[in-house]
Simulated scan of single mutants.
Amino acid sequence: MKKTVKQMVAAANEKIETLTTADAIALHGQEEVTFVDIRDVRELEREGQVPGAVHAPRGMLEFWVDPESPYHRDVFASGKKLIFFCAAGWRSALATATVKEMGLDNVAHIDGGFGAWRDQGGPVEERAAKKA
């Protein structure tokens, strides 16, 4: 194996902005900021979600970011600061580095992810049931 996951996450963290949980909580609700939850839908259903966060499953992220993709989502071209998070901060570090390589500059991720957010008193709500 040429690189371990820990090495990849460490390399990503050297290239990106990492927010403390307290700093992220302070930014929550600001109009020019969008939180992006890359966790699997089952994690959201089991653990809850950050109110107002956009859910962008990690497996679709690059397709949703790329304006030339048929799956592009306008939220990624909004010009707002995008703050990515996952459960613990590893996936979001990799995701943030990836979207930065794709040309998004105003991006960051939360150190410790959703777990740290919840443990430090960040707002959490249950995931609303999807209508069929």
Rank of each mutant, 00 (worst) to 15 (best):
A12T: 01
N13K: 15
E14N: 14
K15G: 05
I16N: 02
T18D: 10
T18N: 12
T18C: 09
T18K: 10
L19H: 08
L19I: 08
T20V: 03
T20N: 02
T20H: 02
A22I: 11
D23Q: 15
D23A: 15
D23N: 13
A24P: 05
A24F: 05
A26T: 12
E31R: 13
E32Q: 14
F35K: 07
F35G: 07
V36L: 06
V36T: 06
I38L: 01
R39Y: 06
R39L: 07
D40P: 03
D40Y: 10
V41F: 13
V41Y: 13
V41S: 14
V41N: 13
R42A: 15
E43A: 11
E43H: 10
L44T: 12
L44Q: 13
L44F: 11
R46W: 12
E47Y: 14
G48C: 05
G48F: 10
Q49M: 14
V50R: 03
V50C: 08
V50Q: 08
P51T: 06
P51S: 09
P51M: 09
G52S: 10
G52P: 07
V54H: 09
V54K: 07
H55W: 15
H55N: 15
R58Q: 13
G59H: 04
M60A: 12
M60L: 14
L61S: 05
L61N: 03
E62H: 01
F63D: 11
F63Q: 09
D66C: 06
D66M: 07
P67H: 06
S69F: 03
P70T: 07
Y71H: 12
Y71D: 10
Y71V: 06
H72Q: 11
D74V: 11
D74Y: 09
V75G: 01
V75N: 00
F76E: 02
A77D: 08
A77M: 12
G79W: 06
L82M: 08
L82N: 02
L82D: 01
F84V: 01
F85L: 09
C86E: 03
C86T: 08
A87V: 04
G89H: 05
G89M: 03
G89K: 11
W90D: 14
W90I: 13
R91C: 03
R91A: 08
R91I: 02
S92P: 09
S92H: 06
A93E: 01
A95C: 12
T96Q: 00
T96A: 01
A97S: 10
T98I: 07
K100Q: 06
E101D: 12
E101M: 00
D105L: 00
N106L: 02
A108F: 00
H109K: 08
I110M: 02
G113D: 06
G115P: 10
W117H: 09
R118I: 03
R118S: 11
R118Q: 13
D119K: 07
Q120L: 13
